[in-house]
Design a protein around this nucleic acid. Sequence first.
DNA 1: CGCCGTACTTGATTCAGGTCATGATTGGGC
DNA 2: GCCCAATCATGACCTGAATCAAGTACGGCG
Lengths: 233, 233
Amino acid sequence: MTSTQRPSRQHVDEHRIFSALPETLRERVLARAEIVEIDRGETLFHEGDPARRIFLCEAGQLKLYRLAPNGNEKIIALLQPGSTFAEATMFMEERNYPVNCEALKASRLVAFDADDCVAMLREDVDACFKLMAMFSRRLRQRLTDIEALSLQNATLRVVNYLLQLQHQQDASEQLELPTSKKHVAGLLALQPETLSRVFAQLQEGGVIQVSGRRIRILDSERFNDITYGLAIS
Amino acid sequence: MTSTQRPSRQHVDEHRIFSALPETLRERVLARAEIVEIDRGETLFHEGDPARRIFLCEAGQLKLYRLAPNGNEKIIALLQPGSTFAEATMFMEERNYPVNCEALKASRLVAFDADDCVAMLREDVDACFKLMAMFSRRLRQRLTDIEALSLQNATLRVVNYLLQLQHQQDASEQLELPTSKKHVAGLLALQPETLSRVFAQLQEGGVIQVSGRRIRILDSERFNDITYGLAIS
DNA sequence: CGCCGTACTTGATTCAGGTCATGATTGGGC
DNA sequence: GCCCAATCATGACCTGAATCAAGTACGGCG
């Protein structure tokens, strides 16, 4: 991991931007922001580490995850270019990261100083509102996750995940998993074997067609039905 | 459910207060706030209902929950006097409640108009910061919930819950469940039967002593061990 | 291009927790 | 204080997903 380069306006503007911060304030944060380059497999921070910086993913892919003592890994979120993360640590009494963060691909991040960001937010209610909107969206996402974990079985979780992907991507019947099946399994709190079997079963039923990371939704009618709790037939 | 009374300053000041709002602003919100009285078993709102108001629980107890098609219920949060809820809806494009809310005991709430609150927040960065701090704490709590659901078994979830209760209450070895075991089960995403068995097993092992809603932690040594994944012996 | 480690698939088996059933106990409301 | 319904406890049984195991396919790197 290196953190020598200085970020240019471009670096940030190229992408969806540290989305809570309006145009006028970006200049100031950038003054002390740093570019962080990180290799595949490297860890950006561990759960419990003091959180002095918040991040924007410019390029690459990372996972936020928690580990069970037995080594089981639950992926909390996949970070794609344009994602910001760790903002909530700014407001905690104890500022430390609540999860581990590791690069799944070589990645380039912009690291903002937490104190700088707080200082800026103090002077800009609009920025606060954008951040609050982001927190609200994230809270609702967590609610969806909790519902999935406590009320849905493996098949339903997979189906809902695929529908969500389909919606995020161009909404065509063809979609692509954003990462390896192993990590998708970690995201859905399943073992890789189970995910594999669910895919096999859905393919068996003629509902989807899987080839590597590409998935085609063949029978969107029945596919939707499954979401409402009907059997796989 | 009745919503005729006008709330006095007292009603709100008596308790922990709409905690994101500093002293100076309370007067203004209160001008249009209403008292809502609700009986045990009544529903305050359903998932999907338009969210025009946010709430402070003054007295009583409520549950926020989601339902599976088969009737299974996951309790997202228990609301006690002093809790505020539904604040995040203020910032959603589509303002609607993401969960159901039902009174577990007859309750008295203060209902604030969402638009009024937004208007107030616009003029007070301190209030924004308090609210952002609350969102951050809540996000972290959700993270803990997700970890519990995806990486911990029934016993571990129960033990961690009891430890959390012990900490919230006076940290003595004696604690009291805040609600019925049925609802505690719903909070931990367990069936009541399973919770009952876990309690029985822990009591069997001499680790706790259960009598109704009162629980005494007998062997805090071993009790803590369980948290680290060791067997119940 | 070929090698090796990782990802993936598939089968056999196990087991934690859910489901169903039956009493015992409790507590809210008249 | 009594009564009915809801809560709670416990046993028998079932099942979905984890675990264990073994073989195949893939992809990154020399």
